[in-house]
């Protein structure tokens, strides 16, 4: 009631109203778009996990010399990933990533038959990391091994 009374006293206002509403709608749309941007940018950044410490470790202690006898293997921590170190029946020390190239399960050394097995989907690699059978699409990445006194050290590129 009060409203109509007020309006009847100032007819000019009602004429301008559509133009004003148009302006308000447009300005609201513009501001909302900007606001969505202002929210989405930090949100996207927030949801991205900061890198874990140890991601760029290039060299690590894999095992003590006595821990890896002939024809046996061991999983070691390389930064945030598992690596595998093993000694072939011929006595050679070798190291690879332990992350299967198929769907990232952790591989293991199988003694006697001497190969690397991924138990997830029965993927098999030879002692050079090449795929023998099963679903893995690529060979395992090899690491360099050197011995410092009693320590077996492993280095990656």
């Amino acid at each position: 009631m009060a409203n109509t009374h007020e309006m009847s006293k100032k007819p000019a206002r009602t004429v301008k109203e559509p133009a004003k509403r148009d302006f308000l709608t447009k300005s609201l749309a513009g501001l909302t778009t900007a606001l969505v941007g202002f929210i989405l940018y930090p949100l996207g950044k927030f949801l991205k996990q900061p890198p874990a410490a140890g991601g760029n470790v290039k060299r690590t202690l894999a095992a003590k010399v006595g821990e890896v006898p002939n024809d046996s293997g061991k999983i070691f921590r390389f930064g945030n990933d598992p690596g595998i170190i093993f000694r072939t029946p011929g006595g050679e020390l070798k190291a690879f990533t332990a992350v299967c190239t198929h769907l990232s399960c952790t591989v293991q050394y199988v003694p006697v038959e001497s190969y690397i097995l991924c138990a997830c989907h029965n993927g098999k690699y030879d002692l050079n990391g090449q795929v023998i059978s099963g679903p893995p699409p690529r060979p395992l990445e090899e690491y360099q091994v050197d011995i410092q006194g009693d320590d077996i050290m492993v280095t990656r590129a």
Partner: peptide, 28 residues
């Protein structure tokens, strides 16, 4: 996370039909 994956890792049964079918595809 630093142990080899044991044998017998399976998803929940309701993902198995997808999982099993995916196994049937050749690597490429």
């Amino acid at each position: 996370p630093m142990a080899p994956t044991p044998v017998g890792i399976l998803p929940e049964w309701y993902f198995l039909f997808m999982f099993q079918s995916l196994k049937l595809f050749p690597p490429h």
